[in-house]
Design a binder for these strands. Structure first.
Lengths: 173, 173
DNA sequence: TGATAATTGTTATGGACCATATCAAATATC
DNA sequence: GATATTTGATATGGTCCATAACAATTATCA
């Protein structure tokens, strides 16, 4: 047995466990009451985030771009010539974990590492022509398939308010 | 070398890489421009979610409850007598992954599995007395340390609107 | 009824993501 | 010029998420 490390192993599966009848005698599994859970910001926030990412990934299936990869391309396009440490830290990605991410983008010829002549330790990041083209197509996909879906759900004004509140939480919490 | 599995290994680290000078000759690392990134709902959503969870975990440090554990306790309190499959699926947790989570709560005597007499395959879940007491304290911590912090940031009306929009996204996207 | 299918909790396992320590090369500091 | 710091990289371990498989039990239905 190899219980998860956080879970102190609780002895062999079914040691002294009482038996009892439940109210669902052939009852047809009514949905559970969420109760206070639906008021927990963290809970709702996470569920919403998962849904948005899920949809994003579906929309990007043809380009095979994950949210993280898309964010790197966007950031490098906007800030060409920055090094890995700068780009990674801006995205909240730790340098060691950024290496494989970049390896992937570089191997697909979307992004290039160029050794800086000013500081030969660092790698300057730029988009390749193909990277720019793919990012352009990605933006269109996001607009037409992803954002559009969201606009059906939320009023434009509300969408803006939502973004603003989330930014506030992300930056000041 | 063991590059991440998603990243096709791109050959040995620094193969043909050009050199080039950047604009930051002894420049003091100005912050990068987020650009369109700050308008990407998914990006902002994720950053906000991480911040909220981070704060939640800090607030719960004395009780050692993660967001997932807290959600299980809340749900079992509201719906005593349901089995693992029902509780797990309501929370979007896959049954196999729910086992270790429950092992942990049960080993800490916060929650109990009871074999149902109606269907001897299933385990009925209930909170122990200690579980109820701990959950009660947890709720107070959330209210006084977590939610309060949020209320400083957002107007009450805005907080309600935020929750409503997130729920809409979580449920209808 | 009895053979077969489905369900429940569980284990095993692998992938993705995140975090820390460490290293060589290059640069900064003093 | 000796020492400390920074950069990209590797190794490694933890946590979370997803799938396959299994035994015990229950449902289905011929």
């Amino acid at each position: 047995m190899t219980v998860s490390k956080t879970a102190e192993k609780s002895g062999d599966a079914a040691k002294g466990r009482k038996d009892v009848g439940d109210a669902q005698i052939h009852g047809h599994a009514e949905a559970l009451q969420l109760g206070e859970l639906s008021e927990q910001l963290g809970y709702v926030l996470k569920r919403a985030q998962l849904k948005v990412f899920e949809n994003f990934i579906r929309c990007m299936a043809s380009l095979q771009l994950t949210p993280a990869q898309f964010s790197v391309l966007l950031l490098v396009e906007k800030n060409p010539g920055r090094n890995q440490t700068e780009v990674a830290s801006t995205l909240g990605i730790l340098r060691p974990n950024f290496v494989a991410l970049l390896d992937n983008l570089e191997s697909r010829d979307l992004c290039a590492r160029i050794r800086s002549t000013n500081d030969r330790r660092s790698h300057i990041l730029v988009l390749t022509d193909k990277g720019k083209a793919v990012l352009s197509r990605a933006k269109k996909l996001v607009a037409t398939k992803h954002e559009s879906r969201l606009n059906e759900l939320l009023e434009p004004a509300n969408r803006e308010a939502l973004l603003q509140m989330l930014s506030k939480i992300a930056n000041e919490f």
